[in-house]
Design a protein around this nucleic acid. Structure first.
Length: 924
RNA sequence: GCCGGUGUGGCGAAAUGGCAGACGCACAGGACUUAAAAUCCUGGGACGGUAAAACGUCGUGCGGGUUCGAGUCCCGCCACCGGCACCA
């Protein structure tokens, strides 16, 4: 690639236009109430006052990329895939007359900067600033049409002040199950008063404890994922196969005091509201699986000879008559109290064994079932039968009620367990296929052997059986309908330095008990202390605990030393973009309702960000967390839409040239700098989109880049005069580098470009291109849009004269894809028609030119070619006038020599005519 | 195991149920050139057939089906990719 001659002077054109856009602030978006400079191209099109009056505001379009973590390695060719797609759409929507918000920023808290700091003692702020500078330089070299005046950085105190503020909203809220909404904690009904006369201190402590038990942000001592190498705990979502999501280090379970966010309270809404958004099927399914709703019943089993009851959760209440034993999770609270003396040693030993095993070992070990009989029995509520109570690690303490009724006949795990320990297996479901083995059959069927003294479901199909038995349980107060979710509360604290400190202090209440308290809003932002050493303390407390001056406050209280996880900043950045400099609020109300509101009357509820593009790796982490925060903010009246992201698209991964995932260890990572230097950013952007459909995984190809680069060279030669270019090159070789860009004006238009009306074939080529490019951009099919541009250029290369109007429209179509080249050629075309240089410069902003409108009448031809099939096989193509009816088509088809060869000697049974499309003759 | 996605030339890929392979890469031949690069033109799914054509047969992971007609719709498999995984 490097040896080939430069196709066109992109190395001068691209910086020229990037500087122009920057100086003109071409892509600036304006908030309600802002007056737009009258010479700004947006004002020229929409009016300088258009944002001042609610009724005149242009339709908005919010197009968002997932902002990157600025790593030290810089951008590789995978990053700009999504950025290019959104940029094309942003530029297209501007041309369509929308007011486009297209921002970029940095998700800059995170582990790598902190680990680097631990190693070198350099403040993470320094490395973060350097990495942001690298990322910004690289992203800006791509000519993406971001409004850089709205840049945000999650590590900027002016930003994380509001992250902490949102945390306070969560802390000061509870979830009201009656309204299914988050509400201020002050609206929580008082704790049930047991009538005892309480001292003020006791009353206050009770109220505090009651509220603390309901807050959306709460403290708990819980077994958590601890990663020794990272020196911190991780959320469930950050642990993959017993290893850390970042770094791949082993993790273990360990009990620790932690901050949690009560995301489970929102599980139902997070699930249901997926119906409101326009996301891919697979992404919605991933979220649904993660939330993991199951519908069933809770059933209480009386423990024999004990006042205790064991509550189990089952999705198959219809199989109650087949329950032959109960299994508790080893950690279940009743295990010790129900176990009689004799088996205690065995039970304790089993519990200890399980506790010792990390979850990694548990999952890696063969699925051989293990467990111990507790010696206790429970009574089956449907028939009073005594069934043994076991403990086993295949029952998880963290799901359902931590206890199950085992129905070995119709559950795979229970069946394995029963076989191993020789427990009875009773059939209660008859499979529809009479020959099928009922042992281990888990599907639906009809209940059998399911009649007790008070209730019978024998003979009922599974669905009806479930209904009837659940109703009966409810009527006897033995059980109830229940829904359980796999989703767990969100572990929200980290033992790290480089994150947002919690706006929380610990103090003693009137009775001397330790309690937490929110700092007032005026205390925000809470800045992290300066440290020399970013490691945890020797006794295992978080790094912030090293700063005694910071931790200990004058009034004797102490600051929380945990910090928030990286997800915190990315949970709401799309809202800060709306109003990033606001010092008085996290976002201005009017800006929020404008930018997050419906795009136009056709937008379905719930509006929000119009298009959000990013990698599938965030399917359950970022996207679930951000939705949760958004819903809480919505309930509290801070935002106007129930969902943040209306349409979401995951771009497919870009693989290395070897068809493997790009990774440092494989050595197949392709950085953006080299291709951009060699073919320019327009060709680079074009190739990113030409590789294949946005959502597909696809390999990078250096040769493929060369192909689209050649295409842009063809576009260049379609417009410019060859002689003038040669003169330019001669002049440029002797000019100083800083003077070269000025010489671009030496290049003149090809003399074949003339101010003449386009002929019918030219209009046909142009409008075919307009239609295809428009439809394809709307559907995010950028690869086929580009091929349509190529088809047009191939055709236009053959034209003797090139009408200015057609060439101008083509440049508007090209502009979203190759904005620098299009801008340069556009400015030359303006000069062609403009009387003076001044007016040409004023008109030079291609970015706000109205998108051309496709005229279907221009695509109609006098004659059309219609394929003719015999028995479904293509035999001929006949030419007919476009107005030919079905009868004429049929006549032309049957008249064809070639067709006759295949129909002679046969009887024509039927002739199918698709108007103007096809004829198929059925002959036997 | 469960959920989702994808299988089309040498390669990346196109095709509202209606001419399979648009567009591009790589390749081959030609023009220009002292030569090369660049550029421009031409060619191409496979097999058979022909001097070359005409032409014929087959062809979208595999096996069935629906249909005048299937890459596309339905049923059953296989492979690969992504996610979840003892979730009651």
């Amino acid at each position: 690639m490097s040896s080939s001659r430069r196709q066109y002077p992109f190395h001068l054109i691209e910086p020229k236009w990037q500087k122009f856009w920057e100086s003109q602030q071409t892509f600036r978006a304006w908030n309600p109430g802002e007056k737009i400079p009258s010479r700004h191209p947006f004002a020229l099109r929409h009016g300088a006052d258009c944002m001042c009056e609610p009724g005149r505001r242009p339709r908005k379009c919010y197009i968002l990329d997932m902002f990157p973590y600025p790593s030290g390695a810089g951008l590789h060719v995978g990053h700009p895939e999504g950025y290019t797609a959104t940029d094309i759409l942003a530029r297209y929507m501007r041309a369509r007359g929308f007011h486009v918000l297209h921002p970029m920023g940095w998700d800059a808290f995170g582990l790598p900067a902190e680990q680097f700091a631990v190693k070198t003692g350099r403040h993470p702020r320094q490395t973060t600033a350097e990495n942001i500078a690298t990322f910004k330089r690289q992203i800006q070299s791509l000519g993406l049409s971001y409004d850089w005046s709205r840049e945000v950085d999650t590590t900027d105190p002016a930003y994380f002040k509001w992250t902490q503020w949102i945390f306070l909203q969560l802390y000061n809220s509870w979830f009201n199950p009656k309204t299914n909404r988050a509400e201020p904690i002050t609206m929580l009904p008082a704790p049930p008063d047991e009538g005892a006369a309480l001292s003020d201190a006791e009353r206050e402590a009770r109220l505090r404890a009651w509220r603390d038990s309901k807050r959306l942000a709460y403290v708990t001592e819980a077994p958590v994922w601890w990663c020794e190498q990272l020196g911190t705990v991780l959320a469930n979502e950050e642990v993959v196969d017993g290893r850390s999501h970042v770094g791949g280090f082993p993790v273990v379970r360990r009990p620790m005091r932690q901050w949690m966010l009560r995301i489970t309270a929102c599980a139902g809404r997070l699930l249901e509201d997926l119906n409101l958004v326009d996301w891919s099927h697979s992404l919605k399914e991933m979220q649904r699986n993660w939330i993991g709703r199951s519908e069933g019943a809770e059933v209480d089993f009386q423990v024999a000879g004990s006042p205790e009851k064991i509550r189990v959760f089952t999705t198959r209440p219809d199989t109650l008559f087949g329950a032959t034993y109960i299994v508790l999770a080893p950690e279940h609270r009743l295990v010790d109290s129900i176990t009689p003396p004799a088996p205690r040693v065995a039970v304790a030993r089993y519990k200890a064994d399980v506790a010792k095993k990390s979850d990694l070992e548990r999952t890696e070990l063969a699925r051989e079932k293990s467990g111990v009989f507790t010696g206790a029995y429970a009574l089956n509520p449907v028939n009073g039968q005594r069934i043994p109570i076991w403990i086993a690690d295949y029952v998880l303490a963290t799901y359902g009620t931590g206890a199950i009724m085992a129905v070995p006949a119709h559950d795979t795990r229970d069946f394995e367990f029963a076989k191993k320990f020789d427990l009875p297996v009773i059939q209660v479901v008859q499979p529809p296929d009479a020959d099928a083995d009922w042992r281990g059959y888990t599907g639906d069927g009809a209940s059998i052997h399911s009649t007790g003294p008070q209730v019978s479901i024998t003979g009922l199909p599974t669905q009806d059986a479930k209904e009837k038995i659940t109703a009966w349980l409810e009527s006897k107060n033995l059980g109830r309908r229940a829904v359980h979710y796999k989703l767990r509360d969100w572990l929200f604290s980290r033992q790290r330095y480089w994150g947002e400190p919690f706006p929380i202090v610990w103090k003693r209440d009137a009775r001397g008990g330790v309690c937490h308290e929110a700092l007032p809003e005026a205390a925000l932002p809470v800045l992290p202390p300066e440290l020399d050493d970013y490691k945890p303390t020797p006794d295992g407390r978080p790094p912030l605990a090293r700063a005694a001056n910071w931790v200990n406050l004058p009034d004797g209280s102490q600051r929380e030393t945990n910090t928030m996880p990286q997800w915190a900043g990315s949970c709401w950045y799309y809202l800060r973009f709306l109003n990033p400099q606001n010092a008085a609020a996290f976002v201005d109300k009017e800006a929020e309702t404008y930018w997050m509101g419906p795009r136009d009357a056709k937008t379905p509820c719930p509006a929000g960000v119009d298009l959000y593009v990013g990698g599938a790796e965030h399917a359950v982490l970022h996207l679930l967390y951000a939705r949760f925060w958004h819903k809480v903010l919505y309930d509290l009246g801070h935002v106007s839409t129930p969902e943040p992201f209306l349409k979401l698209v995951n771009q497919g991964m870009v693989l290395g040239e070897d068809n493997q995932k790009m990774s440092k260890s494989r050595g197949n990572v392709i950085a953006v700098d080299a291709p951009v230097r060699e073919v320019g950013t327009d060709a680079f952007r074009l190739y990113e989109m030409f590789m294949g459909p946005l959502e597909m995984v696809k390999p990078w190809s250096t040769a493929g880049v060369e192909g689209v680069y050649r295409f842009l060279g063809r576009v260049w030669r379609l417009f410019v005069d060859e002689t003038s270019e040669t003169q330019f090159e001669q002049a440029a070789t002797v000019a100083r580098p800083e003077d070269q860009a000025g010489l671009l004006d030496m290049i003149t238009l090809d003399s074949a470009i003339q101010d003449v009306a386009p002929g019918p074939p030219q209009l046909k080529a142009l409008h075919g291109c307009i239609r295809k490019v428009t439809e394809d951009i709307e559907a995010l099919r950028f690869n086929t849009a580009i091929s349509a541009l190529m088809v047009f250029v191939n055709e236009a290369m053959t034209w003797k004269t090139k009408p200015v109007s057609a060439m101008r429209d083509f440049l508007i179509l090209l502009q979203p894809f190759a904005p620098h080249l299009a801008g340069e050629l556009w400015s030359k075309l303006q000069r062609f028609t403009a009387k003076t240089r001044e007016s040409a410069a004023g008109m030079a902003s291609l970015s706000y030119q109205p998108w051309p409108v496709f005229d279907p009448a221009l695509l109609v031809e006098a004659e059309i070619e219609v394929p003719v099939q015999v028995n479904g096989k293509l035999r001929d193509v006949v030419k007919v006038p476009v107005e030919a009816g079905n009868a004429a088509l049929e006549a032309a088809a049957t008249a064809s020599e070639k067709v006759r060869q295949f129909t002679d000697g046969k009887t024509i049974k039927k002739i199918i005519v698709v108007p103007k499309k096809l004829v198929n003759i059925v002959a036997v």
